[in-house]
């Protein structure tokens, strides 16, 4: 890599790829949600996430300094160049998994972006301030929905518990630590992700209790997404859809 600041570039890709991949997954619901209001809510959430992606990847492209744009980073990178956590790339499956995943991510984003507001890097701080407003709004809805469905009917409860059992082993990756995290922490750009784990634990356990859901008692955590070392088989399929226009018609514009 010839980028002058590879750690910052890597950090920004992680910041941008999470909302990008979740934003795309969420947009897959457009026209398919169980109720019109939910369809609108999901599409709007996706829009916010893609908007945040533009800011993070826009900065990443500048730091990289290779003449690539945020669109190039989103549409022309391949699977192993993506730095999102695995939890966000697995298929939506059903409304239960979609909303539970949104909740587990929002419960991380809120304390995480709150920390990033005081980043030593002004651009990181500005983007965090802007994104946090949206993340708080998303959190309000996803937490309410998790409680409503978990503590709902027998059927909705079962769907939510199944979703939780599936997603739980993916949640630990949010708090990973590697050389990039350490370098970024030393420069005061962001704390270690593990520093917000306690806040996440409290939010998640309180909400799950209200939702009458039980998290699996197993500390195992999948990893490999945020380092790009080992993505799931699902990301490639997702990118095939997400990137086809720019792959088939390079440089196409609206």
């Amino acid at each position: 890599m010839t980028t002058s600041d590879p750690y910052l570039f890597e950090f920004l890709l992680r910041q941008g790829d999470n909302p990008l991949v979740l934003g795309h997954r969420t947009s897959e619901w457009c026209g398919h949600a169980p109720a019109l209001e939910e369809d609108i809510a999901l599409a709007n959430t996706a829009l916010d996430l893609i908007g945040q992606t533009q800011l993070w990847l826009g900065y990443a492209a500048e730091v990289e300094g290779q003449g690539r744009s945020n669109n190039d980073l989103a549409y022309l990178r391949d699977v192993y160049d993506f730095r999102n956590v695995l939890m966000l790339e697995v298929p939506n499956e059903d409304f239960a998994r979609t909303m539970l995943r949104q909740f587990l991510f929002d419960a991380f984003q809120v304390p995480w972006l709150t920390e990033l507001q005081s980043s030593s890097d002004q651009r990181v701080s500005d983007i965090a301030v802007k994104s946090l407003k949206e993340a708080l709004y998303h959190f309000e809805r996803s937490a309410d929905t998790v409680v409503a469905l978990g503590d709902g009917t027998e059927v909705s409860h079962e769907h939510m518990q199944t979703a939780l059992n599936y997603l739980w082993p993916y949640s630990g990756e949010l708090f990973g630590t590697d050389d990039t995290d350490k370098a970024i922490e030393e420069r005061g750009i962001a704390p270690l992700p593990s520093s917000v784990r306690e806040a996440w634990n409290v939010t998640v356990s309180t909400t799950l209790a209200a939702a009458t859901l039980t998290a699996p008692d197993d500390p195992f955590a999948h990893s490999g997404g945020r380092t790009g070392k080992r993505h799931t088989e699902h990301l490639g399929h997702m990118l095939a859809t997400m990137q086809i226009l720019q792959r088939s018609h390079p440089g196409a514009q609206w």
């Binding site: 939910e38 809510a41 709007n44 309000e140």
Partner: peptide, 13 residues
């Protein structure tokens, strides 16, 4: 409240 979101990102129903 009907829904937290509406016809544009800035509105709720």
């Amino acid at each position: 409240k009907i829904s937290q979101f509406g016809s544009t990102p800035c509105k709720a129903q």
